[in-house]
Design a protein around this nucleic acid. Structure first.
Length: 114
DNA sequence: CGTCTGACGATGC
DNA sequence: GGCATCGCCAGAC
C-alpha cells in the first residue's frame, strides 16, 4: 500500500455515497479494511479535495460532526435538502439513511476493483 | 527518526 | 444521557 493511498481510498468511497444516504467514519474505515482506522478516515476527510459530499459523513450513531466544521446548521441543512430525516435527538435517522455495506462494496468495486 | 495530532469509537462514570 | 479517558494509526513537524 503506497503512502496516501488510504486517504485516496477514503475519498473514492465518499464520492460514491449516494444522495440521501450517510456513512459513518467507522464505516469508511471498515470499507478500507480496518474498523480501527476511524480517526484515519476523519483526517482523510478533513484533507479531502473540494467537490466531495463530505457532509454525508457522520459520526457513530448518525451524530453530526461539530458545527465548527461546516458552520452552524450547515451539515443538517445540506442533508435535509437531500431528503435525509432526523430523529428527535438531532441524529440522522440511520435506520432509513445509513449507507449499507453491500451498496458501498459494489460502488467501490466499480471505482477500484481490488 | 521521535513526538504530537486528530471532522473517531468504545468504555466508564 | 452527557462528559472524561483511553486506544488506534497514518501524517505532519
Amino acid at each position: 500500500m503506497r503512502a496516501g493511498e488510504y486517504s485516496a481510498r477514503v475519498w473514492h468511497i465518499i464520492a460514491a455515497i449516494p444522495p440521501g444516504r450517510v456513512a459513518s467514519f467507522g464505516l469508511l474505515a471498515a470499507l478500507c479494511g480496518n474498523p480501527r482506522m476511524a480517526r484515519r478516515a476523519a483526517r482523510a476527510v478533513a484533507n479531502a479535495p473540494d467537490g466531495l459530499p463530505c457532509h454525508r459523513v457522520v459520526r457513530f450513531g448518525g451524530r453530526l460532526v461539530p458545527e465548527e466544521v461546516f458552520g452552524p446548521g450547515e451539515q443538517r441543512a445540506r442533508l435535509l435538502a437531500e431528503g435525509v430525516t432526523f430523529r428527535d435527538n438531532g441524529c440522522v435517522d440511520m435506520g432509513r439513511h445509513l449507507w449499507h455495506m453491500e451498496e458501498a462494496r459494489s460502488a467501490i468495486s466499480i471505482i477500484s476493483s481490488d
